[in-house]
Each structure stands twice: as structure tokens, then as C-alpha cells.
């Protein structure tokens, strides 16, 4: 048995390499920038504020990580038209 084990022994470094490559590809996409959520929040707000009046305090950006995917949740409260309403685009 031990002789068989000796001949069928597989090296472990390729497994380490593969696991790291998978993990880091994911982590870089989601956490690569520690301030990613803040950056997304600013940029999404800037785009929406071009067209709609929004209250910067009533915005929620949340990132959640699952095993194989991550979700980005953006929750923005838009003021009613009477309180400012739609702005002209441009």
C-alpha cells in the first residue's frame, strides 16, 4: 500500500496555485478596492443626479458576497415631483 502511495503521490503546489488563482480573481473583483462601495455610490449618484433630484442621504449601496457570485444592491429614494421633481437632462 505504501509503495502504491509513493508512486501515486501527487504534488500539492498545483492545488495551491489553482485555489489562489480562483480566490484572488474573485476577491480582486469584489474587494480589490477597499473603497469600492464608496466609489460606486459616488459615481452612481452622479449619473442619476444628472436626471433626477435625489437626496444623497437617502441612498444605500450594499455589496454582498456569496460562494460563487456577489450582489450589488442600490437603494435610492427619489424625491416626489412636488419637492423638486425631474430636472432637465444635460
Amino acid at each position: 500500500m505504501s509503495v502504491l502511495k509513493f508512486f501515486t503521490r501527487r504534488s500539492s503546489a498545483p492545488a495551491a496555485r489553482e485555489r489562489l488563482q480562483l480566490l484572488l480573481a474573485h476577491e480582486r473583483a469584489v474587494f480589490g478596492r477597499t473603497d469600492l462601495v464608496a466609489v460606486l455610490q459616488d459615481e452612481i449618484l452622479a449619473v442619476i443626479a444628472k436626471h433626477v433630484a435625489i437626496d444623497p442621504d437617502k441612498v444605500r449601496v450594499k455589496m454582498d458576497r456569496q460562494d460563487t457570485f456577489a450582489t450589488l444592491e442600490v437603494d435610492i429614494e427619489i424625491r416626489s415631483p412636488s419637492a423638486g421633481g425631474l430636472k432637465m437632462a444635460g
Partner: peptide, 19 residues
Amino acid sequence: PEVSSVRDSDRIIGLLDSK
């Protein structure tokens, strides 16, 4: 040359590039 060290180095590289 070990998985946890390489992972943490990757994280630090991200911080060096932003902070």
C-alpha cells in the same frame, strides 16, 4: 510561498494602489 501569505500580499497590493 504559502497560500495565506500570498492572499494577504494581494490584499496589501490593492491598498498600496489606492491608499
